[in-house]
Structure formats: structure tokens, C-alpha cells
């Protein structure tokens, strides 16, 4: 824990010193103290918080949709060979397309801008979750399956007793990775197509030539990603009490 605090502190210290000493290009960038002051000022405005709310809502809806659809789809593909043979190639064809490449098509296809942004977020979360979960199902120890069959377990027992619990760590990993990706996507999508949100805030700072505003938005996005991913890891640990805490 203290190592983390230390390295973050050093990072901000170097950044501050570079500003004070006007080192090269870094000297032109606002110092952490400037950014912190601007951030505090920003928190007094309702516009800042509504940006949070708008981006947060997009992330939440897109991410939850991606997870709620991705997990069952991946479990079904993992359990059923035929289904997997049919569906997996399609997934593998679509997966390499970066979610942001979907933005133009998404805008044309969905009736509202909001829906099109959420759809792109959904895609990012879905593939991240689904592929991790599928990998998790494949990695289930075959001895456990054999042991269960010897005990007379039926396929539905095997699913609930083994496949699902064995896959929880992979679900959590997929969700955490998906969450990180989701923030990347929402910011980029808001820069391209948004009228509000944290990504739009950064873009607006750029258009107005306000470096401080850009940095305030970047720091806010970082905090958002950190908190939401952290929440997933914590919940994930709660869901897997059998894994020894290190």
C-alpha cells in the first residue's frame, strides 16, 4: 500500500517540479497544484457534476447490458459445443473491430445519440466479458467434472456445482477489463459525438484552449475508472470466499 502512495506522490512531485523549473514542454502544462485548484473550483459547479452523471450513466447502462448479455452467452457457448461452433466464428469476426469503429454506423442506426453511444460501450464490455468467461469455462478442471459425473451429477448439477463457481474469477476479470475499456470508449465517443459528459468536458477544454480544463477532465476520468474497477474487484473477492487472500 505505501509503495503505491509513494510512487503516486513522486509522480506528482516531479510534475510539480517540472512546472516550477519550466522544464521543456512540460513547463507549459499546468502544475498539479493548479489542476487541484481548478478541480476544487469545478466541483462547485453543477455542470461538472452533471458531466459525471451523464458519463457515469452511459458507462453503467452499457456495461451492465454487456455483462448481463455477455456472461450468459459465454456460459451457453462454453456448455454447448454445437452452439459454440455456430456462434463463435461470428464473434471472432466482429471482435477485432475496435468499438469506436462502430460509432458512425451506430449513430446512423440508433434513433438517438444517447443510444448510439451506449451501444458502442455495450459492444466493448460484451466482448471483453464474453471472451474471458468463455476462457474460464474452458479452463475448468476436467477432474472436477469427472468426479461430479461419478457422483451421479446431471448436467444441470454440473453447471451449478462446478462450471458457474469455477468461472466466477474469470467473470470478475472480464468485468474489470471490460469496465476499463468502457471508460475509454465513453470518453472517445463523447469527444466524437457527445454534447455532454466528461469526455465532452475534455474536448471543450481543447477547443477553448484551456489546458487546465482538459487536465481536470482527465483526472476525473481516471478517478471514475479507478473507483468503478476497484468496486468490481472488491465485489469479486466477496463472491469468491474460497480464494485465499494474499
Amino acid at each position: 500500500m505505501w509503495q503505491g502512495m509513494f510512487s503516486v506522490f513522486v509522480l506528482f512531485g516531479l510534475w510539480q517540479a517540472a512546472g516550477a523549473l519550466r522544464v521543456g514542454g512540460i513547463g507549459d502544462i499546468p502544475t498539479p497544484v493548479d489542476v487541484a485548484r481548478a478541480l476544487v473550483d469545478a466541483t462547485q459547479t453543477s455542470r461538472y457534476w452533471s458531466s459525471w452523471a451523464i458519463s457515469g450513466e452511459r458507462v453503467a447502462i452499457g456495461f451492465l447490458a454487456g455483462t448481463l448479455i455477455g456472461v450468459p452467452v459465454a456460459l451457453a457457448l462454453g456448455m454447448n459445443r454445437t452452439l459454440r461452433g455456430i456462434v463463435f466464428p461470428v464473434m471472432e469476426t466482429l471482435r477485432p473491430v475496435p468499438p469506436l469503429a462502430w460509432v458512425p454506423l451506430s449513430i446512423l442506426f440508433w434513433p438517438t445519440l444517447e443510444l448510439s453511444i451506449i451501444f458502442v460501450i455495450f459492444l466493448g464490455a460484451f466482448f471483453s466479458v464474453a471472451l474471458n468467461v468463455l476462457g474460464g469455462v474452458d479452463a475448468v478442471d476436467p477432474s472436477l467434472l469427472r468426479a461430479a459425473r461419478s457422483m451421479g451429477a446431471r448436467p444441470r448439477h454440473i453447471f451449478w456445482m462446478i462450471v458457474l463457481p469455477a468461472t466466477i474469477p474469470a467473470i470478475v476479470t472480464g468485468m474489470a477489463l471490460g469496465m476499463g475499456l468502457t471508460w475509454e470508449i465513453v470518453i472517445a465517443a463523447e469527444m466524437i459525438a457527445g454534447k455532454a459528459g466528461l469526455g465532452y468536458l475534455a474536448w471543450e477544454g481543447f477547443v477553448n484552449g484551456s489546458l487546465v480544463s482538459i487536465l481536470v477532465a482527465m483526472v476525473s476520468i481516471g478517478i471514475g475508472g479507478f473507483l468503478s474497477c476497484g468496486l468490481i474487484w472488491v465485489l469479486g473477492q466477496r463472491a469468491t470466499p474460497w480464494q485465499r487472500k494474499s
Binding site: S143, R146, S150, M151, P165, I168, W242
Partner: peptide
């Protein structure tokens, strides 16, 4: 497989989450 022939596995097969 059937419960009349129970296997004890080489690398162990207890359910870790139970």
C-alpha cells in the same frame, strides 16, 4: 460413470468453492 465406482483422483478433485 456411476456412483457404484468412485474415483479418488491423482491430483485431487474436491470442489474448491465448497
Amino acid at each position: 460413470p456411476g456412483a457404484d465406482r468412485m474415483v479418488v483422483f491423482q491430483q485431487g478433485a474436491l470442489f474448491p468453492w465448497k
